[in-house]
Amino acid sequence: MDILNLNEWGLDAKAPLYIAGPCSVETPNQLNTTVKDLASRGFKWIRGGVWKPRTRPNSFEGVGEIALPWIQEVKEKYQVQFAIEVANPYHVQKALEYGIDLLWIGARTTVNPFAVQEIADSLKGVDIPVMIKNPVNPDLALWIGALERINQAGIKKLAGIHRGFSNFNDQVYRNSPTWQIPLELKTRYPNLPLLNDPSHICGKRDLLASVAQMAMDLNFDGLIIESHFDPVNAWSDAAQQVTPEVLEKLIQDLQIRSTSTENPIFQSQLELIREQIDQVDREFLETLSRRMKLVEKAGEYKKLNNVAIFQMERWKKVFETRPEWGTALHLNPDFIKELYQLVHTESIKKQEEIMENTGLQKEK
């Protein structure tokens, strides 16, 4: 992808980009009061929902295009730039007509390649920054596909927004961060600006600071975060919004860490630690290889005795004991469970290959 970094956008890539504003534009007074407060605290980029795609009908879905003249007014009054979500070509047309400075494509739109392509077609010949939120479900290919479609329309000022992923098992976050997915995206496209959306990850105000700090620790390029002058009475997502005053304090408290250092002692020690990690990884893979050879041996033994691959009691024992062993070794038991799910899947695959070589009937 042919993508411009934030410096090439005309922004300072060394300083995080902060985009703040209400979940939804509600009234002229709500917008004016919130933007005035944010602008007075140094926020130059404002966000606000005009059209709000909701999961269920009869929810507040935004006031629509009547908000666009209000946005024009606060842009001129407070000398700020404004970002809104678009979900179809009509939204793009109206946003361009009213001088919106930045567009973003939401998670529910990213999952639909047809919708993304329609938006891409409507952006041909237009020079405007576009940010794309990750899809609702943890699918990196869909996220990349949406970025590629918009990029192929000629948009070079392109960025990703990490807003977390739907996970009904998560008891802490509204949307699980699943940090490895945005980090993989950044690994593949280092030039791509990547922002974090702690509001939609958290769903609750009290978690915002920790998630925002994690994003900064992982070298994200900025935050897009919801702020409302009266968040308790917000028309949508009231629980995750904060006042401009609280947001200013949250930003001030963030520790922005250096991505590198010229300190030779630090570099020497870090290199030594990395060499030790490499050695442990080699040993780990050698151990994993030995385990798989034992799995194959067990598969051969099952084949000779006409025994099914999957043994429920054995798997229950493994799945119960390994997290316990991990906890005793100060490892996260949830991580160990995920690890052994992968190991189990690969083990079944290995034994399937052995069974298929003989035509023995498999039972699962």
Rank of each mutant, 00 (worst) to 15 (best):
E8Y: 03
P53T: 00
Q252M: 09
C202A: 15
N263L: 11
P198L: 05
L17V: 11
E338A: 12
A153T: 15
V35A: 03
G164E: 00
C202E: 13
M1P: 08
I119L: 13
L96S: 01
I144E: 01
L96M: 01
T243M: 12
I150W: 08
T259M: 12
L270A: 12
Q240A: 13
G21T: 02
V172N: 08
G160Y: 08
P177G: 05
K204A: 13
L195G: 13
E324Q: 14
A20Q: 04
Q152I: 11
K77S: 08
P113R: 00
Q341E: 03
V130I: 13
F168N: 01
V307F: 07
P129C: 10
T259I: 08
Y340H: 15
Q213W: 11
N357T: 03
I336F: 06
A13V: 06
K75C: 03
V295Q: 01
H330D: 15
I144Y: 06
Y78N: 02
L4R: 12
Q93I: 10
L208H: 06
D101N: 10
M131F: 05
F229P: 04
K75G: 04
V130M: 01
S24T: 03
V126M: 10
K133S: 05
D197Q: 10
K14F: 14
P193L: 12
N112Y: 08
N219E: 11
Q81E: 13
V242D: 07
A67C: 02
H330G: 07
L294F: 03
G326W: 10
N263P: 14
E61S: 02
L96Y: 01
A141Q: 07
L185F: 15
N175I: 04
R205V: 06
P89D: 15
